[in-house]
Design a protein around this nucleic acid. Structure first.
Lengths: 370, 370
DNA sequence: ATGAAAGCGCTAACAG
DNA sequence: CTGTTAGCGCTTTCAT
C-alpha cells in the first residue's frame, strides 16, 4: 500500500499511501496536483511548488507541512507540465542501430551511469538498421524536446539531415561508433582504419597470403574504414588484392553461411579471413569446419568486437576489442558538460578511444614458423 | 537543408527548410508555435491546430495554406504541450530486466511492431536486474504519464508495490515472462513448470540418473517454476533428489565456471545437467570439456532460451525455445486494445504461450540405447 | 515568507 | 467553416 516517489530529488524515500479506488473500467482518474495540496493547506500553489523543491524562501515548518500533506494525498509530480513550463525535459535521447549487441549494451550502460548521476533520464530508441526508423526516432525525440541526443547511425544512413532540426534549436548531438563525417559533428569513435590494419597484419604475420574480408555495407564509416586498413596492410606487405576477396553482405546468419560457401568455392582457396563481426565469423567458421576446413591451420580467422561468444566457440576467436562502456561514458559526459555550460561541444570534433587486438586460437598457426 | 517532419500523422514527407542560425554557445532558440503560424495567416490558433490535424471542419484551401506555412516556417509540434493538454502521452513504457538478451530483444521487437502500428511510442527502460532501478524506472514512467506499461521483473523484485501507482490511476500494466503472481495482474508467460519438466524428462530418457540443476534465484517465478518441473520429473521417474544437485547463482560467466567446478568435484559425478540459461550452459560445458569431460556421453546438457549460441558451440546445445516476438506482440496487443476500450485487461489474467524442447547434440547419447 | 498572476504550447467546448 | 476562451499542471517573476 505504499509507494515511494521522488517528487523532490533530494528528499529520498518518502513513502505514503494511496486512497484506494475501484480500478476496473474506470477512466483515468484525476490525480493530485499542487493546487489540491495548496487548497488543503490554505496556501498558494506557488508556495507548495517551492516547498516541494526545498526552496530556501519557504519556512521550515511550512515546508514540512507541505511535504507531509503531499505524501498523505498521494501527490506525484507531473513531469510533462514541468517540462512544458521550463522548456526543457531533463531527458536525453539515445538512438542506436540495434539493441541486440553486446557492444551497444555496454555503451548504453556507460551512458546510463553518467546521465543518472547528472540527474538526466534517458529515452532509448532503436532503428533496427533502418534509415526510415532512424528518421522517425529522431523526429520523435525532437518533438519530445529532449535536451540532448546520443546516437549511432543505422547501416542505411547516409546523411545527417534528420539531425539538423536539433542543431537548429541548439540541442546538442553526440555520435558514437557509427558516424558520418561532418564538419560540425562531435563523435566518439575508435580508429577503425588502424583496427582493420592490425587485424590484417596479424593474419599476414601468421603466414596468410590470401586474405578474405567479410564485412557489411562500405557506405557505413566503420566498415569502409576497416576495409581501408585491410587494404593498407595488404599493400604494405605486397599482397595482391582482388575483388573476389571482398564479401559484402548484412551481418545475418544467412550472410555468414553464404560467405562460408563462397570461401569454399574460391580457387585458389584463401588462407585467412578477417570478418567485421564476431557473430558472422563464428557462423562462418562453423560452416567451414563442417566442410572439413581446419581452423586456423588451413584458414585463419579474425573477428571484431570481442563478444562473449569469442571464448565459447572452437577454436576461440581472435578479435578486436574496444571499450563500449567507456565510449558511452565519454559521449554522455561530453554532452552533459555542454548542457551545463561547462564546455562547448561544438569545439570538440572527434574523440578516439583505444582498441586492441586480442589473439586467440582462431588465428595462431602451429606450423608456418616465423 | 531539408528536414522531414510529421507534424501531422497522415501528411507524409513534407520537407522544408530551416532558417539557419548561429549554433555556437547560443541558448535554445524559441521555436515556431501554432500562434506564429496563426499570426502570419491572420487566423486563430485553434484553426491552425485543426488544420494541422486535418480536421474536417477546416476548408481545403485554408488547410493547404496552414500546412504550407507550417512547412515554410519550420514548425514542429510540441508533444509535451499536447500531452499535457490531452492528459495522455500516446506513449507506453517498457521496463525490462536487461537489454542484452536475445529473448528480451525479440520481445521488444514484437512490442514495437504492434505499438508503432497503433500510433504509440515506446519508452524503454531497463533495471539491470536491480530492484532499486526498477522502482526508479517505474516512478519515472509514471511521472511521464505513460498511457500503459509492459514489464518483466528484475531478479530482485519480490512485490509489485512500485506498480501500484499505475493501478491507482487506471494506467494498465501487462507483465511478461518474469512476473509475480498477483490477483489483478495480467501476464504473458510460458509454462515454466512444464518446461522444467520436459527438459529434465528428456535427460532422464537419455539415460541420466543424476541430474544437476543450475539456475538463478528461486525467488523469481521463472526459476522456481522450472525447478518445480525438474523436481516433478525426478520424482515421477523415481530419481532421488538431494540439495547437492541444486546450484543457485546469478547467470554470470563466473557463476558458470563455479558451477562447472562444483560439478567436477561432485561424488558420485552427475551424468546430466539442466541449466536455465544457454549462456551459462555454454560456459559451463566449455569448462567441463577443458577438464576432460565428454559431452553428452559423460554428462548431457540442456539449456534454456534457444539463443543463437546454441548452434555455434560444440556440441550444439539442446534447449527450450519460446517465442519472444509473439510474447511481445501479445502483451502489446492486449494493452492497446484495453487502452482503446476494446477489451478490459482486468478481466484477463494469464496468457500462456507455447514453448518447445529443441534437441541438439549436447543431450543425445550415442550409447545407452533405449 | 507567501501570494497573485502570467504563461509554457496545445486542444476542445462553445459560439457564431 | 472559423474564432474566443479556458485550462492541462507547473514554475517564476513581481508584489507584498
Amino acid at each position: 500500500m505504499n509507494y515511494a516517489i521522488d517528487f523532490v530529488n533530494f528528499l529520498k524515500n518518502i513513502s505514503f499511501s494511496f486512497t484506494s479506488q475501484s480500478a476496473s473500467g474506470m477512466k483515468k482518474s484525476k490525480g493530485i496536483t499542487i493546487y489540491d495540496i495548496a487548497k488543503k493547506l490554505n496556501l498558494a500553489a506557488s508556495t507548495v511548488s517551492r516547498g516541494l523543491q526545498d526552496s530556501p524562501e519557504i519556512g521550515k515548518k511550512t515546508k514540512k507541512r507541505i511535504v507531509e500533506t503531499a505524501e498523505k494525498m498521494g501527490y506525484s509530480a507531473n513531469l510533462t507540465a514541468r517540462s512544458l513550463r521550463q522548456q526543457q525535459s531533463e531527458t536525453i535521447g539515445v538512438i542506436v542501430h540495434q539493441l541486440n549487441s553486446n557492444f551497444v549494451n555496454s555503451v548504453l550502460a556507460g551512458i546510463e551511469r553518467v546521465t543518472t548521476e547528472a540527474g538526466y533520464d534517458i529515452l532509448i530508441a532503436h532503428s533496427s538498421e533502418s534509415y526510415v526508423k532512424e528518421v522517425a526516432n529522431a523526429k520523435n525525440l525532437f518533438h519530445r524536446r529532449v535536451d540532448g541526443v546520443i546516437s549511432s547511425l543505422s547501416l542505411e544512413t547516409m546523411d545527417l539531415e534528420h539531425f539538423r532540426a536539433f542543431a537548429e534549436r541548439n540541442v546538442p548531438v553526440v555520435y558514437f561508433d557509427r558516424v558520418e563525417q561532418e564538419e560540425n559533428s562531435t563523435a566518439v569513435v575508435i580508429d577503425n582504419v588502424k583496427c582493420g590494419y592490425v587485424a590484417t597484419q596479424h593474419l599476414i604475420q601468421q603466414g596468410c597470403k590470401r586474405i578474405v574480408h567479410v564485412t557489411a555495407s562500405l557506405n557505413r564509416n566503420v566498415y569502409s574504414q576497416r576495409y581501408e586498413g585491410y587494404r593498407k596492410a595488404l599493400a604494405e606487405h605486397k599482397l595482391e588484392f582482388s575483388d573476389d576477396l571482398l564479401i559484402i553482405d548484412d551481418h545475418s546468419e544467412r550472410a555468414a553461411m553464404d560467405a562460408a560457401m563462397k570461401i569454399l568455392q574460391m580457387n585458389p582457396r584463401p588462407d585467412g579471413v578477417f570478418v567485421t563481426s564476431d557473430f558472422v565469423a563464428a557462423f562462418c567458421m562453423r560452416t567451414l569446419r563442417q566442410h572439413g576446413i581446419s581452423i586456423p591451420d588451413t584458414i585463419a580467422f579474425v573477428g571484431f568486437n570481442n563478444d562473449p561468444i569469442c571464448k565459447l566457440i572452437e577454436p576461440t576467436l581472435t578479435t578486436i576489442d574496444y571499450p563500449g562502456k567507456d565510449i558511452g561514458e565519454i559521449a554522455a559526459r561530453n554532452l552533459i558538460s555542454h548542457l551545463k555550460g561547462l564546455s562547448n561541444i561544438n569545439r570538440t570534433n572527434n574523440i578516439t578511444v583505444r582498441s586492441d587486438l586480442i589473439v586467440r586460437e582462431s588465428s595462431v598457426r602451429s606450423r608456418d614458423p616465423e
